[in-house]
Design a protein around this nucleic acid. Structure first.
Length: 832
DNA sequence: GGTAGTACCTAA
DNA sequence: TAAGTTAGGTACTACC
């Protein structure tokens, strides 16, 4: 039979031998469970195999561990090697013993390889199975491990998705509920596809009269939680979703169940969810299912970049839906109030799980995670909860195995990460000193996938890096940073081959997207090309990541050094070309993989594209394949403020010009909206209309408006900053950390570590004295300010939030802060 | 008053 | 405990 894999767990048979359990879904969407027997965990010991054998068998006997050994030929993880080395492969009965033996080997100076790969990953790698890959296995529940094989299939099985939201009763004084005291009173669930014909239900922990089928009346909390586990088991979801469920709902349910002395069965093995938290990162796993918390998922999507990630704000900004409004303070009253009150509370709860379901479906996040899991090999839950290194490691582990090359162990496994980070510094990209000010008629060119193409072009790989062994004859590639690599003729690196494949697959997926017949087909291909892009872009970062299993500062430094050399060379060639059609060229900016070239002539879009393409082709022709410089956009006007700070009127196609700002306050979330709006309008006037005078007048009006803010404007004066550590741990006072302290003193804990904290700066309360308190201690909760009618420090907003950013923009036109403060309209004194 | 150090966010 | 990388600007505080 055939099924798509979701999750794998390991356990022991009655006789102590390990087994692997696979959880998946059939093509029809039915759950599948398989127990695979007979697979043993193992690792490798390097050096002289005879000595290693003597050592490890002696050790194993002494500490009572059952092992089996075998001498094999394998390549070491790092460095070019013409031949594999002899290594001792050590199998153990209990998978946990691999780590135990690794520690002994480390202590006694026997090099070990792959000894920190966990058992279920070992199983996946050795059986050629991908995280969300398809699997062929015999029909029986219990099978021999060797009868399980992974196959390629681009389709995905139909899923059962359940989203969950709980309402726990806040404390009497309105503070946040805690699982040791406060009951869960409502649980809302949404289903896709429906459960017993219902797309959503709300469970109520109160014996009320209600005839609706989608309201499940429970006598009390215990009965409600029991019903929740019952419904979960019956619906048997593949995906459990929710909003902040990893940080709140699921841990709360687990703790609450413990307090009520009941079992909270959620997994396909009947076990409760497994929750762990470290600082701001919460992970939850449920055996056999996938837990998808939409809060971190949305935070990870760069294009949304919101100022607030409350469900209400996300629903508004991304789904364009409204969340129903019930304040924490009201909840107790609603719960204890009239039938109508309770009805409102139930509707509110229902809406939340419904919104999350809509989010999961509208944003197609699952498509993307499935594509990443399939392409990398990493488990779906690992792709969702973990970082890029997991995916790269999963993919390289599989490629390495095919080449009989062993993976290294992580520096963290031997406690060397900090030391190695200190010893190995990596230099990054180059940013050309830009031409500050306004420039008209610019062409932007950029390198397609610069770092991956550099790695392919120069054969940069762990397997080609010359460390111990010099190649016999053959060309040697030396990077500008001094890294040495064998040429593809001697050995074509593993990483370049993988990258080439990813690049080709991405191109193919993008091409196929244009021909897609249905939106579903298009979405699937989009997910695939996205997955390829993520993997391509992760390879460089991974190589320079100290805690990576394959950490190589030489590779990382070589990549960036080629990048720097390339950008400088690109610049030089443009200057040498000097003019195109008799129109002078000059590079006005460039960052990492891009060049901004000004052309001394008024251009149409088509001219710009023609010239740009011509220059790009000239430069590309002198580069090794597949490095490629391409035309990216025509920029009518650009105002450069500093490195990485500019705004431009940009055309990707002839009809559609858009203002794009980079780095300046309009895109920064720690500035208030008023700053962003004022600046945006000024930039539009300057860049689209070409009118500095209009912009100046507008700026002056904005300054006047801020001096006497109305209620509407106050909303735009809110700033937000991320709380990156506990308030008491800051070395230097910060507005948001000081505000957190105040809120805690007031008994309010609506924000926690990792949240973006909104605040406004209030007027100094001090009547006399030398000067007002620092702004950090005058940061205040916007809600509190509105409720108590507290005056804001308008002087602060003018002096610190408006004038400096405006002065940076207008500075190029010789307009300074004093000029901006002039209330009167000044006619074009400032020719530019 | 100048400057070093902390903190944050962004570009690529 | 888990965590891709470096470059770069700006604001604010503390200290000499």
């Amino acid at each position: 039979m055939k099924f798509q894999l979701l999750d794998v767990s390991s356990s022991y048979d009655t006789d102590g031998w390990p087994n692997i359990t696979l959880y998946g879904i059939s093509e029809k969407g039915e759950p599948v469970i398989k127990h695979a027997h007979g697979f043993l965990h193992y690792f490798y010991i390097g050096g002289d195999p005879t000595k290693a054998e003597e050592y490890i068998t002696g050790l194993a006997t002494k500490i009572g561990i059952l092992i089996k050994t075998q001498t094999v030929s394998r390549f070491k993880p790092l460095g070019y090697q013409s031949k594999p080395s002899a290594m001792l492969k050590v199998y153990v009965k209990n998978p946990k013993d691999v780590r135990l033996l690794q520690d002994f080997c480390l202590q006694d100076n026997f090099p070990s390889y792959e000894s920190d790969i966990i058992f279920r990953d070992r199983f996946m790698i050795d059986h050629g199975i991908s995280g969300a890959g398809w699997v062929i296995a015999p029909n029986d529940l219990h099978v021999d491990h060797s009868d399980i094989i992974g196959i390629e299939d681009k389709s995905n099985a139909p899923l059962h998705i359940m989203s969950l939201d709980i309402e726990a009763l806040p404390k009497e004084d309105g503070r946040f509920p805690t699982a040791d005291e406060d009951p869960v009173v409502l649980v809302s669930l949404s289903f896709s596809p429906a459960w017993r014909g219902l797309t959503d239900i709300v469970m109520v922990a109160k014996d009320i009269n209600c005839e609706r089928r989608d309201v499940i009346v429970c006598r009390n909390e215990v009965e409600m939680l029991k019903k929740l586990t019952f419904i979960t088991a019956e619906y048997d979801p593949d995906i459990i979703s929710g909003y902040n469920i990893n940080g709140f709902d699921i841990p709360y349910l687990v703790d609450r169940s413990k307090n009520l002395k009941m079992e909270f069965r959620m997994g396909r093995d009947g076990r409760p969810p497994w929750c762990k938290s470290f600082m701001t990162k919460h992970s939850v796993s449920v055996t056999g299912r996938i837990v998808l918390d939409m809060l971190p998922a949305i935070k990870a999507i760069d294009k949304y970049r919101l100022k607030s990630y409350t469900l209400a704000n996300v629903a508004k900004e991304i789904l364009h839906s409204e969340k129903l409004d019930v304040k924490a303070k009201e909840m107790r009253a609603l719960w204890e109030g009239s039938t109508e009150d309770l009805k409102r509370f139930i509707q509110y709860s229902r809406r939340d799980s419904w919104l999350v379901m809509k989010m999961v479906k509208d944003l197609k996040v699952l498509d993307k995670y499935f594509a990443l899991s399939k392409a990398s090999g990493a488990f779906l839950q690992v792709v969702i909860n973990g970082g890029q290194s997991n995916m790269i490691e999963a993919r390289l582990s599989r490629e390495y195995k095919n080449e009989k090359r062993t993976m290294g162990i992580k520096s963290t496994s031997i406690g060397m990460d900090d030391e190695m980070a200190e010893e190995n510094t990596i230099s990054g990209a180059i940013v050309l000193p830009p031409k500050i000010g306004l420039t008209e008629e610019v062409v932007v060119l950029d390198y397609k996938s610069l770092y991956p193409t550099i790695m392919i072009a120069h054969n940069l790989c762990y397997s080609t890096e010359i460390i111990d062994e010099e190649p016999e004859g053959g060309e040697i590639i030396t990077s500008p940073s001094g890294g040495r690599f064998v040429s593809p003729k001697t050995y074509r690196g593993i990483v370049p081959r993988v990258l080439e494949k990813l690049l080709a697959e991405r191109l193919a997926a993008k091409k196929a997207m244009k021909l897609a017949k249905t939106p579903d087909e298009r979405d699937a291909l989009d997910a695939k090309q996205y997955a390829m892009k993520i993997l391509l872009n992760s390879m460089y970062g991974y190589s320079g990541y100290v805690r990576a299993r394959l950490f190589s500062p030489i590779i990382a430094n070589s990549v960036t050094s080629y990048g720097r050399e390339n950008l400088l060379r690109t610049c030089k060639i443009v200057e040498e070309i000097e003019a195109i059609d008799g129109n002078k060229l000059s590079v006005i900016a460039g960052d990492t993989d891009s060049v901004f070239i000004s052309i001394d002539k008024h251009l149409t879009f088509d001219e710009a594209k023609t010239y740009g393409t011509q220059i790009a082709k000239t430069i590309t022709s002198g580069l090794p394949s597949p490095m490629e410089l391409v035309f990216e956009a025509y920029v009518k006007r650009i105002l450069i403020v500093a490195k990485k700070h500019y705004a431009m009127y940009r055309f990707e196609d002839p009809e559609k010009g858009v203002i794009k700002a980079k780095g300046i306050e309009t895109v920064r979330r720690d500035w208030c909206n008023m700053t962003a709006k004022t600046l945006t309008t000024c930039l539009e006037k300057i860049l689209i209309e070409g009118s500095v005078d209009d912009a100046l007048n507008y700026a002056r009006e904005a300054i006047i408006a801020v001096k006497s803010p109305n209620d509407d404007l106050i909303k735009d004066l809110i700033m937000t900053r991320t709380l990156t550590k506990k308030p008491e741990n800051y070395d230097q006072a910060q507005p948001h950390s000081e505000l957190m302290k105040k809120l805690t003193a007031r008994g309010i804990n609506k924000y926690s570590l990792g949240d973006r904290i909104p605040f406004v700066i209030i007027r100094s309360q001090r009547r006399k004295g030398p000067r007002k308190e620092s702004m950090t201690v005058r940061a205040e909760d916007p809600e509190y300010v509105v409720e108590n009618n507290i005056p804001l420090d308008t002087e602060y907003y003018v002096q610190k939030q408006l004038l400096p950013p405006l002065a940076r923009i207008f500075g190029s036109f010789n307009i300074n802060e004093q000029d901006l403060m002039q209330p009167s309209r000044q006619q074009s004194l400032f020719g530019w």
